[in-house]
Write a protein that binds this DNA or RNA. Sequence first.
RNA 1: GGCCCCAUGGUCAAGCGGUUAAGACGAGACCCUCUCAAGGUCUAAUCACGAGUUCGAUUCUCGUUGGGGUCACCA
Length: 555
Amino acid sequence: MKTWNDVANLIFPNINETIEDLNKRFPKRNLKEGALVTRFAPSPTGFLHTGSLFTTLLCYRFAKQSNGIFYIRLEDTDQKREISGSGDLLIKELERFNIIPDEGYLGDKEVGNYGPYKQSERGHIYDICIKELIAKGRAYPCFCTQEELDALREEQERNKIRTGYYGFFAKYKQTSSDDAYKLVSEGKPYIIRFRSNGSFLNKIKVHDEIRGDLELSENDLDIVIRKNDNLPTYHFAHLVDDHFMGTSLVMRGEEWLPSLPIHIELFEAMGWEAPKYAHIPAIMKMDNGNRRKISKRKDPEAAVSYFIENGYPKEGLIEYLFTIANSNFEEWRNENKDKNLEDFTITFDKISKDGALFDMEKIKFLSKEYLARLDASTLENQILDWANVFNKELEERILSDKEYFKNILNIERNIEKPRKDYEKYSDVKEATRYFYKDIYDGIDINSYQFDHERFDNNLIRDVLSTYLTKFSDVNSEEEWFNTVKEVTNMVGFCDNVKEYKKNKEAYKGHVGDIASMIRISITSKSQTPNLFAIIKVIGFDEAKRRINHVIEALK
RNA sequence: GGCCCCAUGGUCAAGCGGUUAAGACGAGACCCUCUCAAGGUCUAAUCACGAGUUCGAUUCUCGUUGGGGUCACCA
């Protein structure tokens, strides 16, 4: 007669260590009361997902604000879906968002005493646990073929009963240790399943940090814990890793909630204390009137790289994610505009229970807000960083005269209510074109947006010529605008817009029309920041040259 | 379909048995103004429905409806 212990030894002849040995190798962390250990555990299957960034941001903050540990573990147990190099990329993208792990898988290296932090390198550890589970009779080999499993599912679906490998349908659950031993030694292919003792009819009480007390059906599924590639499934790897790595808080997407009973039973079977769980709602998107989870396939904004490539400041995205993470964040931010994110304490009870619709408008608003509050040098550097990778032409233009570019950025900046012109770095290129002589000279005069309905070329030339006779290099905006008003009166326009509106027939136009002609001449555009500020940046002589240039061109 | 989660304006949401039901984004209006971007002031817009508990329900309970998730040798 063979026992389960014999089966365990047959399957794992070379495993001599025990769970007890592992407990010694990975001792309990010595952290002070309340310190949380959290982790980001990505699969290396592509770029960083906006939803992952969201969850990670929360994990990171919870660890940091409690003086705990945040680490990264690479969940690379699905070799079929793995995209090589994406693990490194994930780390780099996280770094860009100032998420610096205390330990774990860091791309080119690993830091920390609880490794390895790549699941594909932890096979030995899982096997030790599985071996003990088999010896205890809580796991067993299952010899079902994929075809058998498919047939089972089909049959269950046909009979409208719950699908899955459980109870009566668990073909090898009742197989004796003797028979199992025989089948394994015959070389029949198998995988390892967990032996559940649960009943679907029983309810278990579980606590979720976000959702509170929940009543879920007990698990009765004999889930696969070791696949035929000898690697564990997510469920089992989660159990073992989060136990030995000392994770105290597991934050993950709410799609994991249905499998929570599995994890609870797994922890019980091992005799380990389960971590706290917090299931984060998914970020949603409106699609044809229906909500759905944002998906990398359909939604560009589901990839964090979308924001980076398009030149959104990372701070805008982070601020946005905080507003949907904690509903009191916006209020706090409005009262503490200059404080760092780290000064805000996030709490579980302010995390929404249902998924927010992704609001691009709000990100734009927050990005504008952020960029407007930066000083010119910082902004210049950020734009350069972006342009260096994504827009060489812009980079070259800025580098041709950094000081000049900074002057442009400084227009109406260092004041209480700074301009909000840019929502992303990429906006700068178009918005600042006319400041550059060569670009300005290349613009077709016919594209200038003069109001030809009201003013013909002769009148415009007359106005500009008159203006040139009065135009001088003054230092204050008031002085400058007085000149404009003076010219306004000289050419029979009204220097007061309100006055003009009351009595339109008496004048050819108003001071705004005059300013507009000058503006268009100098910038080629009808909408610009403060004209005087622009003249100051490009210089009096250049402004004069441009006006002359337009007078000539309009002949 | 089974199971689970969720439900306040267009969006994010405050509220935790009695409120004129906050605030932010967005929308609209007006003011300011040499245009724009802002800024200021204001407006419109929400408790999914039906029972029950209660003197009183947005709030508590149940049901209905709706939305979402999940049912793999993927995570």
